[in-house]
Design a binder for these strands. Structure first.
Lengths: 193, 193
DNA sequence: GGCTTTCTAGACCAGCCGGTCCACTCCTAC
DNA sequence: GTAGGAGTGGACCGGCTGGTCTAGAAAGCC
């Protein structure tokens, strides 16, 4: 399929409009017609730009949102080379998800996409990239002598990923970021000890 | 509504049948008709025992499943008074969720129930009870002098809850229990240090 | 300027699914 | 045994939703 500049713009508008809607509170059970209305497009356009329909569109939105997750942690995530950097990063993560509140675009997308392989792939890729950056951070701290060498960077970064995911999930259920803060604090403390 | 013994049995059969189906692999997008077929009942019965329909039924199933979550951690969860008890508990949690694999009954139910207040309440209650038992365990260890007094039992138990939730979520996405094991190991290590 | 391709629009369709309704059976109390 | 309520069965309905199709407007290309 060839896309003119105009076409590109429309396609992008659909993705970003859908993403924006998912970030709103009442995102449960999004329908193609919702997206159509929000983005000011027509059924024809949606299927023109996403021939495989819902799944293809939602997958595109998921990728878009996944990129945002990491982008929102910049620049801290990329340079975890001091304790202040770690603190800043921790605060950025907490702030991001606190702002997001109970809504969770990627969560909704995963529901909607069910267990399609593509969906798992998007999440897996995101988690892998995220963890790799955290791992790099742990290693950097070790090389700088700020973290004792006995710490297993792989295990530590995996624990951080799990902790964040769980903290966010609890935040979605209870509306409180206490768990997210607790797990990050404990894990960073552990790193520090 | 009056329920005879037979009625009770049928109602329970519906709940347990639905729960069993949710524990299977292809549980995404469960429909009342699925449950009707699996439990060998009729539309009439479902609405007879759950007048509010889907939401009421799924909420009942969610409560049933939530109880199972804690039950599956017995007896360890109730007596975390030694390091071996903690290890056993950790192993029980990992084993339970590893066996559960990618499917997650409560997760599916939460999807289906959307953000209804009842759904959040079930999850919140489960997490609160779970965390209270872990907190008790930490305190017991401190009273026995096995954990240093400086550890904040509230924060530690919150971190464990978040870690488990996240580990399970990653397990659902990637199929690997590595993150769950990592976060539990790191957190228990931290407790031990 | 005319031909082709892309872009936009919205009517329309078919299947699914939660929920209603009524008819029938079975149990129990008196 | 009979009346009334509980239990059971399944036809039926209405709305929603993903997806199709046709057809016209706009834009690129020579």
């Amino acid at each position: 399929m060839k896309l003119t500049a105009k076409g590109q713009a429309t396609r992008q508008r659909i993705i970003e409009g859908a993403a924006a809607h998912l970030r709103s509170d009442d995102a449960g059970g999004v329908t193609l017609d919702d997206i159509r209305a929000i983005t000011g497009t027509s059924k024809g356009q949606i299927f023109h730009y996403f021939p495989d329909g819902k799944e293809e569109l939602f997958l595109a939105v998921a990728r878009f949102e996944a990129d945002r997750v990491l982008a929102d942690q910049r620049p801290h995530l990329g340079a975890l080379t001091s304790w202040t950097a770690w603190e800043r990063w921790r605060d950025a993560v907490v702030a991001r998800y606190r702002a997001q509140g109970r809504s969770c675009p990627l969560g909704v997308l995963m529901n909607e996409l069910g267990g399609t392989p593509g969906a798992h792939e998007v999440i897996s890729t995101l988690l892998a990239r995220w963890q790799a950056e955290l791992r790099r951070g742990v290693l950097d701290m070790q090389e700088a002598g700020l973290v004792r060498a006995g710490v297993d960077a792989d295990r530590m970064s995996a624990a951080l990923i799990a902790g964040i995911q769980g903290g966010v999930q609890v935040l979605r259920s209870t509306g409180s970021a206490a768990h997210l803060e607790a797990v990050l604090d404990v894990l960073v403390d552990h790193l520090r000890s």
